[in-house]
Design a protein around this nucleic acid. Structure first.
Length: 271
DNA sequence: GCTGTATGCAGAT
DNA sequence: TCTGCCTACAGCG
């Protein structure tokens, strides 16, 4: 579920459902019992996303609820209230009309304003935020010999890009994932940034990661829709061993800094 | 039912 | 670079 687009979408949905409402907060699973008690009965102000981090603000307290879904976390918004609790619900928020259930997050804790500030200070620009500065990311990337595929996933470089977007955007620009950041030119970076912004914005509005250009869409290529586990069409992500949709070469995979990277060795040759 | 895998990241080594 | 966290689900028997 959770790359940046998911969190921004959730922030919009939560704000839409809860802003201005008094919320009931509980922690059925127990691990956020103290925090839930702190926010219980307060007016919900807004939810906001920074990269893959979600912050919830309530009236009358200076702390924010910091949520990071990690690899497994899910936040589900339900219509109505009084739903039976299923599974390990870390945090349940209820208005008089909606319910939000949080399960399996890496983080669900109260943050003081200085902790929020520290978080924001360490994150790179978030392509989904209007005030994001792509130059800040470029300075980091172009100064480091680290492989571009690793840098795109580094949240201090770019906030919100995850394993799918990095693989897909590198394919879309036919870039060798192992190319050092120092080998990237500024024009290419500007194109990558613009592409990420567009792809992620689409992700926010559709709720899925779709990266295929029109000419490579299933209908255009006479193949059945993949409709993979994440519901979107992609070029290389999780397609190891299958034919590249552009050139037919077998897609490769390799673990890079603990995550499975996917790429087409023919389309994405180092220059 | 069990096993493997997963859109993430912190902390240890 | 490796391990642990923590939950859900697909695939298998």
């Amino acid at each position: 579920m959770p790359e940046g687009h998911t969190l921004h979408r959730l922030a919009l949905e939560l704000t839409d459902a809860f802003a201005g409402s008094v919320l009931t907060a509980s922690s059925p699973q127990g691990r956020f019992a103290v925090g839930a008690a702190r926010i219980n009965g307060r007016f919900f102000v807004a939810a906001d996303a920074y990269g893959k981090h979600l912050l919830l603000d309530f009236d009358g307290i200076e702390e924010s609820v910091h949520i990071h879904l990690g690899l497994y976390g899910r936040l589900t918004l339900l219509i109505g209230t009084g739903h039976p609790v299923t599974g390990a619900v870390r945090l349940r928020l209820e208005s008089n009309a909606h319910t939000a259930d949080l399960r399996g997050p890496t983080s669900c804790v109260l943050y003081h304003p200085d902790e929020v500030a520290a978080l924001l200070a360490r994150l790179g620009p978030d392509p989904l935020r209007a005030d994001a500065d792509p130059e800040a990311a470029w300075r980091r990337i172009s100064a480091s010999r680290t492989a571009i595929a690793a840098q795109l996933m580094n949240q201090e470089v770019l906030a919100g890009v995850g394993n799918i977007y990095r693989a897909e955007v590198l394919f879309r620009h036919r870039l060798d994932p192992f190319m050092p950041g120092t080998a990237l030119d500024k024009t290419t970076w500007d194109a990558i940034w613009a592409d990420i912004v567009n792809l992620m914005k689409t992700g926010v509005s559709t709720g899925k990661i779709d990266t295929i250009d029109v000419e490579h869409e299933p209908e255009a290529m006479g193949r059945p829709p993949r409709n993979d586990v994440h519901g979107g069409e992609v070029y290389v992500y999780r397609r190891a061993g299958q034919e590249c949709l552009v050139c037919g070469t077998a897609v490769r995979t390799k673990v890079l800094s603990g995550r499975n990277l996917f790429w087409c060795p023919a389309c994405q040759k180092q220059l």
